[in-house]
Design a protein around this nucleic acid. Structure first.
Length: 473
RNA sequence: GCUCCCUUCGUCUAGAGGCCCAGGACAUAGCCCUCUCAAGGCUGUAACACGGGUUCGAAUCCCGUAGGGAGCGCCA
């Protein structure tokens, strides 16, 4: 039993390990969601680890934003920042001592070696290899340095990275949670850096080592890591640490088939939040992006976790389609209760509006609103001055005649009871159906379409309905 | 260049040799309902990238082709 969350966990764990180098992107949000659901589905722990080993690119404000976005989506982690436990710390920048032990272990085993090549030399080598039509791999310059040579250079203070010595002629196999059996030849992998010259741990290393240290047993991550997996398996194997089961999910593409990027419009969770999207809409949309289930309703995270199944993760890249997100947004908005609706639209509502009226107004316009901005015109129509009529509206009103409106206005004088107003107008004119309602709608709102009139009238300032109707009497 | 991944309606997908002249959801079109819009109901349009094999039979297996993507970094 976990003391802070009160949850009971099975032995496994999943994790989301973002790097605070930017905002939480939709693709990463989906990865986080899938890991969260996988954990919840199996009653496992969901770990959040901040991969901030690259001091030059990591920013504290990005970490803050990341945590905020995840919480907004409802993806609360069981261990991680703010939920530290014995397996932490959960910021990689604070785990240097742990890494040092592992570096030492690998050095003792002789499976790593210091590399003195400079960035310039390496760049030149890669360039030459590409030009020669070969794979740009580390040429092995420092691989066979003699012990004396190494000591001499190290002693002279020459900066060195630590490289992993990749064994030759080996197949590395693993079963991917979504792609099935994968097999790579070690000869295609060059010796890679696991510790930078400044002493910090490189991704392949810290990421793999931490998964093992934190008890992570299943990892869903972006497909861009698929061909990196053999490297991490090699490290874990050398260290004698257990490897998690990896599942690689496809990238999210824009409508043009290119990987989703800023030029496709909004791509960060923050942007959608600020535009008024509901977290449950984003979550439900992301859940269906590259994952299938028999469920077609808007579901809560617990329900989603119940039906989440990594075997139903798609292999093909999914296209982000804002129209589909809008559908979920509509569902999410329509099921908001009056209080939640008022909270959602609160920033737009006129100040000084009494809470009860505010709530009633929001409930009235909600069926016609997808994003908060859609409510804006109705705020003006209901609480602002009487709206002017367009050409068509003027025609409809004129055609109904002054007798129609004088009867309606008289009824409105007794209160903004729409049924009574409509009944009076009907009695005076004999009109019914659209003939009856359209003139009233235009006179009262200035538009030919919109939310139901009765609830709208109930929240209009006292006497306003009568004033608007009298204009045409 | 090398290695790897991917390719079913507009979109998300079901489909693991016959149950598929391919099913669902959303979108879209039409109709019904209706004071409008929304909601709801009904009906429709719409896809196995291409070419070869294997098989009595292939969306499903194999091989190619094309297209898209990723990795090969002292980024993660």
């Amino acid at each position: 039993m976990d003391r802070t969350t009160g949850r009971t966990f099975a032995h496994g764990a999943t994790r989301f390990a973002p790097s605070p180098t930017g905002e939480l992107h939709l693709g990463n949000a989906r990865t986080a969601l899938f890991n969260f659901l996988l954990a919840r589905h199996g009653a496992e722990r969901f770990v959040l680890r901040v991969e901030d080993t690259d001091a030059s690119r990591s920013r504290p404000e990005h970490t803050v934003g990341l945590l905020q976005d995840l919480r907004w989506l409802g993806l609360q982690w069981d261990a991680g920042p703010g939920c530290e436990d014995a397996l932490g710390p959960y910021y990689q920048s604070q785990r240097a001592a742990l890494y040092a032990q592992r570096f030492e272990q690998l050095q003792r085993q002789g499976v790593v070696y210091p590399c003195f090549c400079s960035a310039v030399e390496l760049e030149a080598a890669r360039h030459a290899q590409r030009a020669a039509g070969r794979a740009p791999r580390y040429p092995g310059t420092c691989r066979a340095l003699s012990a004396e040579e190494r000591h001499r250079r190290l002693g002279a203070g020459q900066p060195a990275t630590l490289r992993f010595r990749v064994p030759a002629g080996r197949y590395i196999e693993f079963t991917d949670l979504v792609h099935g059996l994968q097999r790579f030849l070690s000869d295609d992998i060059g010796d890679f850096v696991i510790r930078r010259a400044d002493g910090s741990a490189a991704f392949f290393f810290s990421n793999a080592v931490d998964d093992a240290a934190m008890g992570v047993t299943q990892v869903l991550r972006g497909e861009d890591h698929l061909t990196n997996t053999p490297r991490q398996l090699l490290i874990l194997e050398a260290l004698g640490l257990p490897a998690p089961r990896y599942g690689h999910i496809s990238l999210i593409l824009g409508s043009d088939g290119a990987p989703l990027s800023k030029r496709h419009g909004a791509t960060s969770v923050r942007e959608f939040r600020e535009r008024g999207y509901r977290p449950e809409a984003v979550v439900n949309y992301l859940f269906r992006l590259g994952h299938s289930s028999g469920e077609h309703d808007l579901l809560g995270l617990d329900a989603l976790a119940g039906v989440f199944d990594p075997r139903h993760l798609g292999r093909a890249p999914a296209h982000f389609d804002e129209q589909q997100l809008t559908v979920w947004q509509k569902h999410a908005v329509h099921r908001l209760d009056p209080q939640a609706a008022r909270d959602w639209l609160a920033p737009l509502l006129p100040s000084g509006l009494d809470p009860h009226t505010a709530m009633a107004f929001c409930a009235a316009v909600l069926p016609n609103v997808v994003l908060p901005e859609d409510a804006k015109p109705w705020i003006d129509i209901v609480f602002g001055p009487a709206p002017a009529l367009c050409g068509e509206g003027a025609d409809v009103v004129r055609e109904a005649g002054s007798g129609f409106f004088s009867a309606a206005a008289r009824a409105a004088a007794g209160g903004a009871d729409f049924a009574a107003i409509a009944a009076a107008a009907r009695a005076a004119s004999g009109r019914k159906g659209a003939q009856l309602f359209r003139p009233l709608r235009f006179a009262l709102t200035g538009l030919g379409h919109g939310p139901e009139l009765a609830p709208l009238l109930r929240v209009m300032p006292a006497g306003e309905a009568e004033r608007r109707l009298s204009r045409f009497a």
